[in-house]
Design a protein around this nucleic acid. Structure first.
Length: 292
DNA sequence: GGTAGACCTGGACGC
DNA sequence: GCGTCCAGGTCTACC
């Protein structure tokens, strides 16, 4: 089956796929040389659907298997619209970026949308798995978590859904440590899964535009294993771009380009991007760090 | 409020 | 092949 969804323009699917590393982590998979994206999607009735997302004029087309009830198409449309930020408006950011040579490329490339997973739970777990490790470590831990604790998509070999809160919550810390090699992150992830599964923490509710940025950030840093960097990263994914995900790489780049390589802290990074106000996270993320 | 040390893993490196 | 060191954020205890 196939549905077509329009996107607010400008829009390039490839810009979303390559917006950050998420497309390299399951249950995403790049296809057609990175021009398309697939994702193992869990429907509200718990059935798995393999979505293949490709570009069409004005938006995207989403292919999935025929045994999905037609009435569930709206659910897929809504989810894909969220995951690809199809309705998000970057007009103001583009207007400001026109006057900054280091950002003059963003509108013509339709940059700004950051690829999201189906749930904030999945994005939060993945973000915790980016902390205090290399990117190859993040990929390894995510792949192991998905293949050991996720659900295999029946009609394919090797595709799994991202584990639900319950699938992780019913596991054990030692299992997560030893089977998924999550190390000290295991108790954090288990604790979050248990809270979400029990309904004690409405993580998905943080997607609501009704909640202030400050409150969303406060809730995110209350999660064990989510510090300032991880929370800021999640804020960006949620469309709150006034937060800067300052990691060691950010400190290195900003030090080299703005402070002659002198040691700096997060205050200096904030200071450099402060003029971008509510867009400073995106300004940092999309900044052209090459020499000219 | 600021800081030091522990946490855990994989990769790089020297022997 | 083995041992050692290091990088990567967050938490906790301590000042």
């Amino acid at each position: 089956m196939k549905i077509e969804i329009t996107a607010r323009q400008p829009f390039f699917l490839s810009s979303v796929i390559n917006s950050h590393g998420w497309a390299d982590l399951p249950s995403f998979k790049k296809t057609e040389g990175g021009a398309e994206l697939s994702y193992i999607f869990r429907m509200s009735n718990q059935q798995l659907a393999k979505l293949t997302i490709s570009s069409i004029p004005g938006g995207v087309s989403v292919d999935y298997q025929d045994d999905i009830q037609p009435s569930l198409a709206a659910e897929i449309t809504s989810a894909v619209t969220w995951m690809l930020a199809l309705n998000d408006d970057f007009t103001e950011f583009y207007e400001r970026a026109k006057n900054e040579p280091k950002l003059s490329h963003v509108e013509e490339n339709a940059q700004g949308r950051l690829l999201r997973s189906q749930t904030l739970f999945e994005d939060t777990i993945k973000t915790i798995l980016t902390t205090n490790t290399s990117w190859s470590g993040t990929i390894r831990m995510t792949e192991t978590l998905v293949t050991k604790f996720g659900e295999p998509y029946p009609a394919s070999d090797g595709d799994f859904s991202f584990p639900s809160p319950r699938q992780i919550a019913t596991s054990h810390e030692l299992t997560l440590r030893n089977k998924a090699r999550l190390g000290y992150r295991a108790p954090y992830i288990l604790d979050l899964a248990k809270q979400v599964d029990a309904g004690d923490f409405d993580l998905e509710g943080l997607k609501s535009p009704e909640i202030s940025s400050k409150e969303v950030f406060k809730q995110l840093v209350s999660i064990k294993g989510v510090g300032n960097y991880a929370a800021a990263n999640l804020m960006m994914l949620l469309g709150h771009y006034e937060y800067l995900p300052i990691d060691s790489w950010a400190l290195k780049l900003v030090s080299e380009k703005f402070f002659n390589g002198e040691p700096i802290g997060s205050n200096e990074v904030e200071e450099v991007f402060a003029p971008w106000g509510e867009w400073k996270g995106l300004a940092y993320w999309l900044w052209n760090w090459s020499e000219d």
